[in-house]
Design a protein around this nucleic acid. Structure first.
Lengths: 152, 152
DNA sequence: TATTGTTATACTCTATAACTATA
DNA sequence: TATAGTTATAGAGTATAACAATA
């Protein structure tokens, strides 16, 4: 819309191609950083995401499937592999005999903490060339776009 | 750095956590859109990326491996599956008897074009809530951060 | 009957190692 | 010898379908 005149927010006109291209490139750059950090800790991006989710939750398998937008059978396999590596543990829910909850082990928590720090540091390095004011502006805009994604 | 006082651009101080979190969330949102569009066309994200690369190139397998940051054996499989679906074709290089080049078929090109449009439209929809001025600012900042990623 | 979770199966994606063919 | 590419193999990740157990 930046190339149009007199448009209003929420119109159907397409966004400028430069914006879309830059945004897609940006996501590949960030995802690559995340992948690199995860690999350095010998886990996949998905496993790292799983550990990240479990940092402040002990969800059921079904809840985990919703968080990750995955089929329940995919989550079974994911948790199987993480459990086999000693990063998470399963335990039966007290409230519902059908449910299984998942929690980090001590080793899993250590890994989650350090990987999270590394990602923050290395993703932070990407925005290091921006001034403080630019970083603040960028943070606000990024959060708004991310929110639009969640609501879509 | 936005929480610090008197810092200068390029310092070693960490970026604000909100910025990193928002950025990571943003990339997951965009990747999810790309995955959804690719799935609607019954290809994976990687296949879509392959077709995108081939839109304006007919690279050798080795060059493709560099573009995608994949092992040559991974590219063999990737191109195998795309070829089996009639989206790309292989042909021997004239200059080097060892090399194989890859090109889009007509069907592959059609798919690449429409998928590319869809991605542009749907990623564009994510920034639809920003004003024109905000979109321009965001485009500039995103491009700069993406460039930092390429140079890292 | 509906929900939760697992298992069986099949496919894609990825890497390592071993191989062939060409330079 | 070095490079280009394929194949064999193994493992992660994903989904669908069928199943068992619980609600």
């Amino acid at each position: 819309m930046s190339s149009s005149i007199g448009t209003v927010s929420g119109s159907q006109l397409p966004a400028a191609p430069e914006l879309v291209d830059g945004l897609v490139e940006l996501t590949f750059a960030v995802q690559q950083v995340i992948g690199r950090v995860a690999a350095a800790h010998e886990v996949s991006v998905v496993q790292a995401r799983l550990l990240g989710i479990l940092r402040d939750r002990e969800p059921t398998m079904a809840a985990l499937a919703r968080f990750l937008s995955l089929d329940k059978s995919s989550v079974s396999g994911l948790v199987d592999r993480a459990e086999r590596r000693g990063l998470v543990r399963r335990y039966g829910s007290e409230h519902d005999g059908r449910s299984v909850q998942v929690a980090l082990t001590a080793a899993g928590r250590r890994l989650a903490e350090t990987a999270s720090c590394d990602i923050a540091r290395q993703v932070g390095a990407l925005v290091d060339g921006l001034t403080d004011a630019e970083q603040r502006r960028f943070a606000t805009l990024a959060a708004r776009v991310a929110r639009a994604g969640r609501e879509a």
